[in-house]
Amino acid sequence: MCLAIPGKIVEMLPGDSAQALVEVLGVRRKVDLGLLEEADPGRVGDWVLIHVGFAMSKVSERHAMEQIRLLEALGETEAAAIELRQGLEAT
């Protein structure tokens, strides 16, 4: 129900509210980072999920990699798949 896509923070913009330039395949737009968790605000190089010009969350590289690994292991050995599955659930 909401179109949101990952983009990369390429520049922090000056000013008091947290604004940054975010890039998606070479297209740049000013994005408001004010909704990100205070403990973990956005930094240049971070990937964030953009929805209506706001960053909704950070994209976790680790989770993405693990999901791909899990999918790659599907149908290989059942044991490897189970191990990965448990790994994913524990995170």
Binding site: L3, I5, G7, V24, L25, G26, V27, R29, I50
Partner: peptide
């Protein structure tokens, strides 16, 4: 082109 695809993904 990448930028066309990027804009299309952003704008649906």
């Amino acid at each position: 082109r990448d930028a066309v695809r990027g804009a299309c993904e952003l704008l649906g």
